[in-house]
């Protein structure tokens, strides 16, 4: 039962709030929470693997989210015709172009960041915090220099604007799209980690890096790959989040960093399934509490993290000795 409990937490939270709101409000808030959770999962999944595999605390992760958001703006700007077109194919093509470009740019930035900064501070958490926070500040300034400090508007593709009614609840179309993208990415990650040799090595490396090296695997090289993939996922999350917000600022990634760390800690460091569950919980808590007790909304995620850590000090799905 104790092992099953983390799996039951998500449905339990969803069911627990039903008596306090109407059915249509519950449905709308649940979809909104899951959509926010999916975007958080995209942003956080790379961070949890980076921490789990190499014990690296990367506070600059928000920089890759910001970069993804700005790349999406830059790609969608010239594609305004496609974005506002009546053709759903052109709409989706524009969105795909933005997401792919964000992934590539953030992935390349991750590769450079790892080579220049991260590999110099392996094994020292204090140095990692200092150097990655410094990296985040520099990245933020570079983004201001390139795109300017003013907020930039971003239009959703026409097909994803608006909303539709389900059982009397208003569901935003974009949120459903975010849920779909998040599920696809989670399924792909799950398959990669559980059905391939490289996934097996990553899972083993998260648990005991030293033993994986003693089995002949070059974990350093693997880590660079994971770091790049994690940065690319952060970029995708940033692009999706930017589309959702429709107005982006240079602090968009920094604002998400605290939520991303809460997700990773709640889930259990290094656990992708934990990250997924943690992201959903954070998304749902933000929406439910925002509706039921708006004044408590700001602190709801911190309270959620504290409650879960009191219950399971190593997170919902602890990995190895972490």
């Amino acid at each position: 039962m104790n092992k099953l409990a983390p799996y039951l937490l998500l449905p339990a939270v969803m069911l627990a709030v039903i008596p306090f709101m109407s059915g249509s409000s519950w449905l709308a808030l649940t979809v909104a929470g899951l959509a926010m959770g999916m975007m958080l999962f995209l942003m956080a999944s790379g961070l949890t693997l980076v921490f789990g595999l190499m014990d690296v605390l990367n506070f600059a992760h928000g920089g890759f989210i910001t970069l993804g958001a700005y790349i999406a703006v830059s790609v969608l700007g010239p594609l305004t015709g496609w974005v506002s077109s009546e053709s759903w194919a052109l709409n989706l093509l524009a969105l795909l172009a933005a997401v792919v470009a964000a992934a590539i740019a953030s992935g390349v930035a991750g590769l450079v960041f790892e080579a220049i900064l991260i590999r110099r501070v392996y094994g020292s958490h204090l140095q990692q915090i200092l150097i990655t926070v410094g990296g985040l500040i520099v990245a933020g300034e570079l983004i201001v220099a390139l795109w300017g400090p003013q907020p930039l508007p971003l239009a959703k593709p026409a097909i994803l604007r608006g909303s539709f009614l389900v059982f009397g609840a208003t569901i935003e179309t974009y949120r459903m799209a975010a849920v779909a993208v998040g599920l696809v990415v989670y399924a792909a990650m799950h398959l990669l980690l559980n059905r391939t040799r490289i996934g097996l090595v990553v899972r083993a490396g998260v648990e005991n890096r030293e033993m994986v090296e003693a089995l002949g695997y070059r974990v350093r090289r693997l880590f660079v790959g994971v770091f790049v993939a994690g940065s690319a996922l952060a970029g995708i999350g940033g692009a999706m989040w930017a589309e959702y917000q429709e107005l982006i600022t240079p602090s968009i990634g920094g604002e998400m960093t605290i939520l991303v760390f809460i997700v990773v800690i709640i889930g259990g460091l290094g656990s992708v399934s934990g990250c997924f569950t943690g992201a959903m919980l954070v998304g749902l808590a933000a929406n439910y509490v925002g509706f039921l007790a708006p004044k408590l909304a700001l602190g709801s995620n911190i309270a959620l993290m504290v409650a879960i850590l009191l219950w399971r000090p190593r997170g919902l799905f602890p990995v190895g000795g972490k």
């Binding site: 040799r197 097996l200 648990e207 033993m211 089995l215 002949g216 190895g320």
Partner: peptide, 30 residues
């Protein structure tokens, strides 16, 4: 370390180095 292992040296540490979350099959497959 990986290069040393690849020369054909198998190591069983004092702590055994078992990956608890992986199955027996996956531990061997690695």
């Amino acid at each position: 370390t990986p290069e040393i292992a690849r020369l054909g040296i198998a190591y069983v540490p004092e702590t055994m180095g078992i990956f608890a979350s992986l199955t027996v099959r996956e531990n061997l497959l690695l």
